[in-house]
Amino acid sequence: MIPRARWLEVQSLFEQLIDEDAGDRTSRLASVCGDDVELRSSVESLLNSDARREDALLYAIGEAAESLLEDHRDRLIGTRIGPYRVASILGHGGMSTVYRGERDDSQYQQTVAIKVLQHATLHPRLRSRLHSERHILATLDHPSIARLIDSGDLEDGTPYLVMEHVDGESIDTYCDSRTLFVRERLELFVKVCAAVQYAHRNLVVHRDIKSSNIFVTVDGTPKLLDFGIAKLLEKGDQDTPATDLTQLVGRAFTPEFAAPEQVQGAMRRSRPMFMRSACCST
């Protein structure tokens, strides 16, 4: 980097010269800099850049802003999905976008999370399987599992799931922001385990349990979110070949939180996922 003393010289000269006309600049520069060619060329190049008329900085920022707005000017915002008006985006997942939906038929007030699966990522052959999966998910009824309320297809055939909207914060943020004791953390953890066990008894595995998928509501109830990539275990036979959906989403987990068997691509059973969930609430 330019030495401090030299930078101060450059800065001072630049400021003295910016408002002078070109002829005066040249003579002033020559007299002040003498044979210090480096100083002279530093100041000159700054003055030259200062003279550029278009504001390239504004242009660079404008372009970034335009691209950001284009990407986030979501076509679904403001439209209706079933009885819900799409209000805003809650988040983006690997295969889906989750919107906040408000019930819009003046029946009653209700906020939901609407998960819209990204059209392009879905192989047509897998749609029917997804349909059957969401029926199974709809049967999960547990206080610590975000409920599936409804599901369907948009006009263009893109499948969506309407889920219970959980107003809370992720379990690690919840624990840390309240500086919970170990005992309180473990009590939360036990509730999470109960929900996981319940799902497993119904032969549904979550397969992407991590702290950001476990929210805790203000009244202290943990809620497991995002059973979106859950796979229905083949009944009674752990060794049946992977289903199409499994193959598609087979690696759709988060490595930091996945069971080692998952990462290695070994056959998945309920057990490793359950054991591994121990790590999520620490």
Binding site: F14, E15, L46, N48, S49, D55, A56
Partner: peptide, 8 residues
């Protein structure tokens, strides 16, 4: 000054 420096 800052803008000229950045452009350079």
């Amino acid at each position: 000054l800052a803008r000229a420096w950045l452009l350079n």
